[in-house]
Write a protein that binds this DNA or RNA. Structure first.
Length: 507
RNA sequence: GGCCCCAUCGUCUAGAGGACUAGGACGCCGGCCUCUCACGCCGGUAACACGGGUUCGAAUCCCGUUGGGGCUACCA
């Protein structure tokens, strides 16, 4: 049998990492079995569903690379794929069940139902529909409905038990006495979730229903529906919930949880997917945990999915992202980082010259080791390139280095050793200057390099100087929006600043 | 309340009765590399929720307790 799986989100909010993990596992099964992945939108809750969420959802899925073979935005032989467009279908099958006596009209008012629940609660047994309208004569019920009386349609639950087999949770048996005659069609004619879901899954020939654990208890209801309809149910696999760091269900208050936020923060889609694949599933050990989509597909197995809920860990996600980031070529990195570079005013918003982009590519190679995600660039790059002698030199680490007895001597000698003409310093210029200082002063190692670093960058730490200095030099002549001053000016400013603060101390 | 599901280092997990002195990864700590930070490499820390069984033998099977989660809607 052809493997057909589906992802069926409700467009009632932004796509969430928990939903994406469900989508991912469906997608993995489809890819692995060379089956079809179907995108269906469950928008029967008209109050909360919005078309902008549907658009965003499609956008997010595309960005993630979770491509679907059939469904919204794609078409297919089993459409429509939006539940609000499938109303007649639900009506038809509800009428069929009604005609067969497997379902019945219910005229109970919300007040009555509420009173029933309260009474059952007090009695201490299961709380569900009392079955009051079960025995209403069908002909009379039809007359009342035709007369305009509001009615829902409920499924008549048979006695006995329901056996469900779950691909991850195993076998579960539930007594139908625990299940009330639930609503199929609401009084406004719209389909209730379980009903729409079953009709759609069956009609769309879904072979495996892979969804969140929250639906585990809905499954017996759906199985009963398949039984009433005389249809063969699909295979089921339920996925445990993703929790926030405090052990409660992951939600907005745990920080970024929507895909849109992760995208904006500069996480790589392949990294996010890789991390999500590790929640509740584990690859065969030898390959490690950093995997490409293809490797995950190859290795994936629903049978090895964890039953207990997993906690979302931003630290590990960051590690996965960092690792994927490092595997990118510098060109790929540049094209992905461009918006962030523009945002940090490192590059102009328009008309980036080829010299500027070649320079930016080298800058990114130096910066990449300092970021977890691309948006970190907007903080890290100004730290690397920025130079404000007045305040930078006063920070404790820099000040400590400048306080070394030989610091001023090294800096002055370094300045004098720099070529006197105006051309940009190259790596060789820098190396020769350092060698010159070393020879003249006899100072080496930390005592030599630290003061130079502080004089050039204002900071006690950062990327290797022999790569940073040529980069600063070239950058300073590129007409960038970022105020990048050349190395000679930096050292001059540093010497001035040291002199002034020295004067102050003498006063 | 009733029913269902879950339970291994702080976190993600390996583990399907003896190969477990419980393995890996993130984090954390330490070392190496190095002008510095970061990267990288090497090492270390740390767990079978609890109580009963079953068995020659239990992380693994059974029961209970505790703790989490879900369903019990004219939400999905």
């Amino acid at each position: 049998m052809m493997t057909r799986v589906r992802f069926a989100p409700s467009p009632t909010g932004l796509l969430h990492v928990g939903n994406v993990r469900t989508a991912l596992f469906n997608w993995l099964v489809a890819k692995k079995q060379r089956g079809s992945f179907i995108l269906r939108v469950e928008d029967t809750d008209r109050e909360r569903s919005e078309s902008r969420f549907e658009e965003q959802l499609i956008d997010d899925l595309r960005w993630l690379g979770l491509d679907w073979d059939e469904g919204i935005g794609k078409g297919g032989a089993f459409g429509p794929y939006r539940q609000t467009e499938r109303f007649e279908l639900y009506q038809r099958f509800a009428r069929q069940l009604l005609a067969e006596g497997r379902a019945y009209y219910c005229f109970c008012t919300p007040e009555q139902l509420e009173a029933d629940r309260r009474a059952q609660q007090a009695a201490g047994g299961p709380i569900h529909y009392s079955g009051r309208c079960r025995t209403v004569d069908p002909d009379e019920a039809c007359r009342r409905v035709e007369g305009g009386e509001a009615a829902t349609i409920r499924l008549r639950i048979r006695p006995g038990s329901v056996h469900q087999h779950d691909l991850v949770f195993g076998d579960i048996v539930v007594e139908t006495s625990e299940i009330g005659d639930f609503v199929l069609l609401r009084s406004d004619g719209s389909a209730q979730y379980n009903f729409a879901c079953v009709i759609d899954d069956a009609l769309m020939r879904i072979s495996h229903v892979i969804r969140g654990e929250g639906h585990l208890s809905n499954t017996p209801r759906q199985l009963l529906l398949y039984e009433s309809l005389g249809w063969e149910p699909p295979a089921y696999a339920h996925l445990s919930t993703i929790l926030g760091p405090d052990g409660t269900k992951l939600s907005k208050r745990h920080g970024a949880t929507s895909i849109a936020e992760f995208r904006e923060a500069g996480y790589l889609p392949e990294a996010l997917l890789n991390y999500l694949s590790l929640l509740g599933w584990s690859p065969t050990e030898e390959k490690g945990e950093i995997l490409t989509r293809e490797q995950i597909i190859e290795d994936f197995d629903l049978g090895r999915v964890q039953l207990s809920p997993a906690t979302f860990d931003f630290d590990k996600l960051n590690w996965v992202n960092r690792t994927h980031l490092r595997e990118l070529s510098s060109q790929a990195l540049l094209s992905l980082a461009l918006p962030y570079l523009i945002d940090a005013r490192v590059l102009p918003a328009t008309a980036v010259s080829s010299a500027q982009s070649a320079w930016a590519e080298r800058l990114l190679v130096l910066s990449a080791n300092y970021v977890d995600k691309l948006s970190d660039l907007t903080r890290v790059i100004p730290e690397i390139l920025g130079f404000a002698p007045d305040c930078d030199l006063k920070n404790p680490e820099s000040a400590a280095i400048l306080a070394q007895p030989t610091a001023v001597e090294v800096i002055t000698a370094f300045r004098e050793a720099l070529p006197t003409d105006d051309r940009p310093l190259t790596f060789d210029d820098y190396r020769d200057a350092v060698l010159g200082v070393k020879e003249r002063t006899g100072i080496k190692g930390k005592l030599l390099f630290h003061p130079i670093r502080v004089a050039v960058t204002g900071r006690s730490s950062g990327p290797e100087l022999d790569r940073l200095i040529p980069l600063i030099e070239e950058g300073s002549r590129l007409g960038l929006p970022f105020p990048l001053i050349g190395v000679r000016d930096r050292v001059d400013a540093a010497i001035r600043a040291i002199g002034e603060s020295g004067d102050e101390e003498e006063e």
